[in-house]
Every structure is written in structure tokens, then in C-alpha cells.
Design a protein around this nucleic acid. Structure first.
Length: 777
DNA sequence: GTATTATCTAAGTCT
DNA sequence: TAGATAATAC
């Protein structure tokens, strides 16, 4: 079978081991995804019904990619029937089908972290607890880890160990908060992320018939990134697979980086205890990276004590040594990264999308972004405030949520007075107190607000208008398609008018466009054919809302298409690969994080994180650190990361800037080291001074000053002809030779031309750097 | 009830 | 620095 021929020996054996429990320990870049997809394809070709296969991945993106790959092997009709997705999305789907058994409606809302946090804050207020002591994030993570270990609020309060710990830290009320929190979720017909897994366990534990149903339905289970599963996920898999034990888990203990979220590495280490006849396969050959990269990564991970013994090796080229970039400030770090990318692009003729910049924290993206913008290099950021995290998007989605599930208190509170309709804080507070007293959702209270005497009559009228509006939307839920209804809601709720009015300023324009983008997305969804069996012919808004809370930025399909540099956290980069990788911010207290230095386990997780980052690289890896960095608006000095000391010098090229620049750009950025150092050190010292000078200036003058700064920094070479180049001219480029200008874009610094060169095809050039000579006007 | 201003405090990673 | 919340004026 040709399928197997594309795999190495161990990979083949892993694929052919279809029956019974098996574990694949897959080193970084060893073709893990390949094995997983081929195994699924192999099962299907062997005659297994795709409906009987469940494949669990870590991200939606991974699921989508895997599905696409399987499609190319077995065809789309077969591939589409495999149940493939994240734990959260797959089990949300099952929970919706079985919801009433647990006392939930099938259209329950999934609360995201913001919703959860806002509930916690309200509870703290009601209970008059100190927000500084009970930090919402901490409370939430305590609750979350309880849930991930399947400790219900009842068990929590009955667990002396847990309650004792809370008391000792002065937070004895966490158990109570947990209880109230769960009540609120229940009242709102909502589940948070952890509940999706927790309640799946409850379902499979308390309803044997349901368990049997799914055990019969699914005969083959495959779990990707098994090292990052938590107890809750582990138990779901164990329960479902108990019947056939046709379970394949794939993972790499060296890449376990989600312990903070409850991931338990024991799940992988103890596999053979749960399954005595477990077959284990080790994939140790790396197909991704150069020998140098593999060598560095191996040396780094050796510093960790706990790990499964394995040796990653590669037949790939030796490759270049890893390069170290050292800068004086975070801004300079951004510029240096950008310049290096620019130089490599020119030198090696590679795409923007061949580059990734990886960092430990999202906050680091800004300096990098600035650098890239200055060099006109397109980039896309994954994570951070995602599209769905934007205020205007959340507001609009809140309307949709409320229409789907009127008990969704968080959604209601978001929109009851947005846009303003005269229902202010005092009223809302009254309603909340009353609803809590009656133990009902806000909607149930306001539905019959007229007959109660909670608020003055004029306010009650306004509330009724709101209620009727939502009800009028709800009528159309099953008759209109998602887009028609979404559009209708947007226009009739006042949101459309509100955003149109705010369009006068730059930020307003963006919000308006975001709204349009969301609607466009819903339109696309409405026109898509449903792949559910027996689904009705129209795709409705409640279908669209099903797992919208589970979508993240990384799932944005549009991002995959554009040719641009990728910026993301190392966590988000897991499973991905790029020819050129920059790992930035390698400084003590940043990477490893200050918060990880208390324990060996946490430090080892940071080191695994570094390992993951290194092993993303295919051809070249750059490591950068800065001697100072802005944190909380203040300049902080930093020392190089301890991880840099762990690097084996024989893999490292420690000549910083000069080596990085190609001859071509070198001409433009002549003597960069000296210039940069002096200019940036001046910048650091001057920063506070400049600031105090700036304060009295009116805003406009301040902006002008900033523009000047940017301009002067960007004045790398004053190329005289660059502005006189026009479409149609014949030009000469030092490297590409003779060419013809096809189009011109941008102004001044940003002026770009696409030029067709006789020898090397069409190139987009930034005129400021390209040094084109005009041959013929 | 709403708009504007002042003050506080937070940034660790994600479904 | 920036977003969230509290305080203040209208």
C-alpha cells in the first residue's frame, strides 16, 4: 500500500497497530501529525467506518489541518465523518445532545473567561470580600483546577485539605465563592470551559446508558498532544475507550507546557499502568530541523531531570549555527529582528510567511510590531486580544447570545443599556439584588417587570421595550438564516446606528469595520452547506453561536492565507514550524518567567517551553535578548536568561549584528552596530527627560514630534531617485538587474514598487532601500 | 441617568 | 502605558 511507503519503519509500525492501546512518543519534528493522519486514513481504507473514529486535538487549527490532510488521502466525504476536534468542542457537541439529562437546555451558553471573571467580581462584591485579597484571576484558577481534578463545589467544601489551605492563606471563602459561582452558571444555563469537561465526566459517570451508547458509537480513539491533557480529559478518554481499548495517544513529555492549566504529565508516564498490554513506539528521527538546531535543543532539555529517555537525531544538513542578537532596549530588539528579516528576505528570496517571532508573553509583541512596521514588513499576530475579544464584537455577540438563551445574565447585563436606553446602574443593581433573592435569572425577573414594584413606572416601561425587542428577535430564530437575523438584530437594536455615529473618529471606523467583518463571517456561515446529518436546510443563528466561545484567534482561517510574518507566544506555536524562527526576550524574569522561579517543576516547564520554541525552527534560529525593557510603563534593566548559559557554544554564533546583514543591506545600514548603540543608548537615557518635556505640549505638537522621531530613525539612506520612480519606467537593480515598474504603492517612506525583472520575475521593493537606477523614463 | 475626569493597578502561558 | 473603576459634575 502506497500509504505506508511514505513513512519510516517505526512510523509504519505505529500506523499498523490499529487494535488495542498504543502510545507514540513523538519527538519534536518527528512526523507526529503525519502518523496520526495516516493512521486515521489507514483505518478508513481498512474499512473502519469514519463515524466510529474520534480524534482529539489540542487546537481547532490542528483539527482542521488534519482533516484537510485526511481528505486528500481518502476523499472529503469520508474525512468529514470523522469526529475530529478539540476536547472542548467535541464534548460540547455531545453535551448539547444530552443536555437535558444534566438539567441543562441544549442551547446552553458557553461562558468564556471574561464572563467567568465578571461573575466572580460580582460575587465578591455581594459577599463584601476584599478584591485585593481575593484576586478574581486567582480565585478563578483555584476553581478551575478543582474542576479539572473533578472536584465539585460540594467536594471542595468537604475537603479539609483544600479548605485548610484556603484558610491559611486568609481566603477561607473560596469554597463559598465556588458554590455561588456554580449556582449562577446554572441559573444562566451556562457552562464555563472547565464545565464542558467536568459535565462530560458527570454524564459518562452517572448515565451508564449514555456511556454505552458512545462506547458503541466510537470504536477508535486518537488523542494528540497527550502530554497536555488534564485529569478530567484523561478520564473522559479512559471511560469512552474502555470498551474497545482501541486508543492511540501521541505525545512528547519534553513538550509538556500546560501544567498551569492542570495538564498532568503522569497521564503519559502512567499509560502502561492503565493499559498493561500497551504498545509503545518512539519516533526519534527529526525531519524538521538542522543538526545544529536539534543539537541545541537536545542539550537544553538535558538540563531537566524528569523525562522519558530518548534521543532525537536528524539526517538533515548541519545548517547554520544559531545566532545571538543582543540589544540595549526592547525597541531596538524589534528593529534588529525586522532588519534581520529584511536582510534574509533579500538574500535568500523567501516569503514573509517563512518567518516567525516567538515570545514568552503577549505584551512583548508591541516592540516587535513597531520594528516590523518601520521596515514595512507585513505581520499577523496570533493571540492577544483576538477578534472575538474586541468590545464591539462581544457586544454584538451578547445580543445574539441573549436571543439564543435569554437566561444568559452576562449577555443581558452587557446589552440592556447598550446602546444607552435609560436603564442605568441603579436600576440594574436593584434588578440584580431582586433576581438573586428570588434565585431566578434577570430575564425571568424583567419579563414580568410591569407587575412588580421594583422600579419606577417610567423605568419599567423602558425595560419592557427592551424585553419586547429581544422577544421580537427571538421569533425569527428558526425561520431566518443566521445572517438575516444577525443583520436584523444589528440594525434594530440600535448598535448599527451607534457604531455609524462613532465612525467619525479613527477608532470608530475600526469598530464599524469589525462589526461588518463579523456579519460577513456570519453570512459566509449561512451560505455554507451544513455537514450535519438531518439538519434543516437553513443555517440559523443559534447554530452559529454553538461553539463561538471556543474559537480563538489562531483559528482564523484568513490568517493562514496572507503572506506575512507570524508573531505569537511560544505556547501558541506548539505544533507549528517555520524556516526562520526568532525567539525574543531571553532574559531572566521574563523567560524564564519570574513567577516560575519558586519551584523546580515550574522552572523545568519553562525549559520545556524553550525547547518547544527552539524546535519550531527548520533552517535558522535567532535568539535575542535586551538589556532593558519597558514594563508597567517603566524602564527595567534585565540580565540574559539562564537558558542562554545552557546553550552549547559549539552551536552558537555569537557575533551579533554585522554577520546578520547581507552585503546589500549592509550598504544601506552602514556601520549599524555603532550607530544603533549610540542612538539607542541616548534614547534610553533621554526617555524620561523627553517625556517631561513633552507633557506641556499640546497633543498635536506631541504627535508631530513623534513623527519626526520616527522619520529620523528611519532615515537609513537618502535615496534621491526613489521618489521619482514611476509606473512604466525601466530601472536597474544591483542584484536583480534590468526591470520594468508595474505598480507603485504608498507614500514617502512607505513607497513600494512592484517591478518585473527579466531574470528574476516580479519583486515588491521598498524604494527607499532598493536603490533603483532609472534607465528609461 | 449620563458624561467627563481622576485614580488605580496590572502583564503569564490558553480552551 | 492602558484599561478599568471610582469620583465628580452636570
Amino acid at each position: 500500500m502506497s500509504l505506508l511507503e511514505q513513512l519510516n519503519k517505526v512510523q509504519q509500525e505505529a500506523v499498523k497497530q490499529t487494535e488495542g492501546p498504543s502510545m507514540i512518543i513523538a519527538g519534536a519534528g518527528s512526523g507526529k501529525t503525519r502518523v496520526l493522519t495516516y493512521k486515521i486514513a489507514y483505518l478508513i481504507e481498512k474499512g473502519v467506518d469514519p463515524f466510529q473514529i474520534m480524534a482529539l486535538t489540542f487546537t481547532n487549527k490542528a483539527a482542521r489541518e488534519m482533516k484537510a490532510r485526511i481528505e486528500t488521502i481518502v476523499g472529503s466525504t469520508e474525512a468529514r465523518n470523522v469526529w475530529m476536534g478539540t476536547f472542548h468542542s467535541i464534548f460540547a457537541r455531545i453535551l448539547r445532545m444530552e443536555a437535558e439529562k444534566l438539567g441543562f437546555p441544549s442551547n446552553f451558553t458557553i461562558y468564556d473567561t471574561d464572563d467567568s471573571k465578571s461573575i466572580i467580581k460580582k460575587i465578591l462584591k455581594e459577599q463584601q470580600l476584599d478584591v485585593k485579597l481575593y484576586k478574581p484571576n486567582q480565585v478563578l484558577s483555584r476553581i478551575s483546577s478543582a474542576k479539572n481534578n473533578l472536584i465539585s463545589h460540594i467536594n471542595y467544601n468537604n475537603n479539609p485539605e483544600l479548605t485548610q489551605t484556603d484558610k491559611e492563606s486568609g481566603k477561607g471563602k473560596i469554597g463559598l465563592i465556588y458554590t455561588i459561582y456554580q449556582e449562577r452558571l446554572r441559573k444562566a444555563s451556562a457552562m464555563d470551559f472547565d464545565d464542558l469537561l467536568f459535565n462530560t465526566n458527570v454524564l459518562l459517570r452517572d448515565f451508564p446508558d449514555v456511556l454505552i451508547k458512545y462506547q458503541r458509537r466510537f470504536r477508535y480513539f486518537l488523542v494528540d498532544e497527550y502530554q497536555d491533557t488534564n485529569y478530567s480529559q484523561y478520564l473522559i478518554v479512559k471511560r469512552l475507550a474502555a470498551q474497545t481499548e482501541n486508543l492511540t495517544v501521541v505525545g512528547d513529555d519534553a513538550q509538556s507546557i500546560y501544567a498551569f492549566r492542570g495538564a498532568n504529565i503522569q497521564n503519559i508516564l502512567n499509560m502502561n499502568k492503565d493499559y498493561p498490554d500497551l504498545k509503545t513506539f518512539k519516533l526519534e528521527q527529526n525531519y524538521r530541523s538542522t543538526q545544529n538546531i536539534v543539537g541545541v535543543a537536545n542539550a537544553i532539555i538535558k538540563n531537566n531531570k524528569k523525562q522519558i529517555n530518548k534521543t532525537i537525531w536528524t539526517e538533515n544538513d548541519k545548517g547554520d549555527k544559531l545566532r545571538l542578537i543582543s540589544t540595549l532596549s526592547d525597541n531596538e530588539e524589534g528593529i534588529r529582528v525586522a532588519r534581520t528579516i529584511f536582510a534574509i528576505k533579500n538574500e535568500e528570496h523567501v516569503k514573509d510567511s517563512d518567518f516567525a517571532v516567538l515570545y514568552r508573553t503577549n505584551a512583548q509583541s508591541r516592540a516587535i510590531e513597531e520594528g516590523l512596521r518601520k521596515m514595512n514588513i507585513p505581520y499577523k499576530i496570533y493571540g492577544g486580544t483576538s477578534f472575538y475579544g474586541r468590545k464591539e464584537i462581544k457586544d454584538l455577540l451578547a445580543y445574539f447570545r441573549l436571543v439564543v438563551n435569554t437566561d444568559d445574565d452576562e449577555a443581558l447585563l452587557r446589552v440592556i443599556n447598550y446602546p444607552k436606553r435609560g436603564i442605568g446602574n441603579t436600576t440594574i443593581e436593584k434588578l440584580r439584588v431582586e433576581a438573586n433573592k428570588l434565585n431566578i435569572s434577570l430575564w425571568k425577573l424583567i419579563e414580568s417587570i410591569e407587575s412588580s414594584k421594583i422600579v419606577p413606572k417610567s423605568t419599567a416601561v423602558r425595560i419592557m421595550e427592551f424585553v419586547n425587542m429581544i422577544l421580537s428577535f427571538k421569533i425569527d430564530l428558526k425561520t431566518k438564516n443566521a445572517y438575516e437575523l444577525a443583520d436584523h438584530i444589528t440594525k434594530n437594536s440600535g448598535i448599527y446606528r451607534h457604531l455609524t455615529n462613532s465612525k467619525t473618529e479613527d477608532e470608530g471606523v475600526m469598530r464599524f469595520e469589525n462589526m461588518e467583518e463579523l456579519l460577513a463571517g456570519i453570512k459566509e456561515f449561512s451560505e455554507m452547506e451544513s455537514d450535519e446529518e438531518g439538519a434543516s436546510s437553513i443555517r440559523t443563528l443559534d447554530e452559529f453561536m454553538l461553539d463561538i466561545a471556543l474559537f480563538t484567534d489562531a483559528d482564523d482561517k484568513n490568517k493562514d492565507i496572507s503572506d506575512s510574518v507570524t508573531l505569537m507566544t511560544i505556547h501558541a506555536s506548539k505544533g507549528l514550524e517555520f524556516p526562520y524562527v526568532f525567539i525574543v526576550g531571553l532574559e531572566e524574569n521574563l523567560f524564564p518567567s519570574l513567577l516560575s522561579l519558586n519551584s523546580r517543576t515550574e522552572l523545568e516547564e519553562e525549559r520545556r517551553l524553550f525547547y518547544v520554541a527552539l524546535t519550531r525552527g527548520e533552517k535558522k534560529v535567532f535568539l535575542s535578548y535586551s538589556e532593558s525593557r519597558y514594563k508597567w510603563g517603566k524602564l527595567q534593566f534585565s540580565e540574559p536568561s539562564r537558558f542562554l548559559n545552557e546553550l552549547d557554544p559549539k552551536f552558537i554564533d555569537d557575533q551579533t549584528s554585522d554577520m546578520l546583514l547581507s552585503s546589500e543591506t549592509n550598504m544601506n545600514i552602514k556601520g549599524p552596530k555603532k550607530k544603533l548603540e549610540s542612538s539607542s543608548s541616548v534614547k534610553i537615557i533621554n526617555k524620561p527627560k523627553a517625556k517631561s518635556k513633552e507633557i506641556p505640549l499640546p497633543i498635536k505638537a506631541k504627535n508631530l514630534k513623534k513623527m519626526d522621531e520616527i522619520k529620523s530613525q528611519n532615515q537609513i539612506s537618502s535615496n534621491d531617485q526613489s521618489n521619482s520612480i514611476m509606473v512604466g519606467m525601466e530601472v536597474f537593480h544591483d542584484r536583480f538587474g534590468r526591470g520594468k515598474v508595474l505598480t507603485i504603492e504608498g507614500e514617502g517612506q512607505n513607497r513600494k514598487a512592484s517591478v518585473f525583472f527579466n531574470n528574476s520575475g516580479t519583486k515588491i521593493l521598498i524604494l527607499r532601500f532598493a536603490k533603483l537606477r532609472i534607465l528609461k523614463q
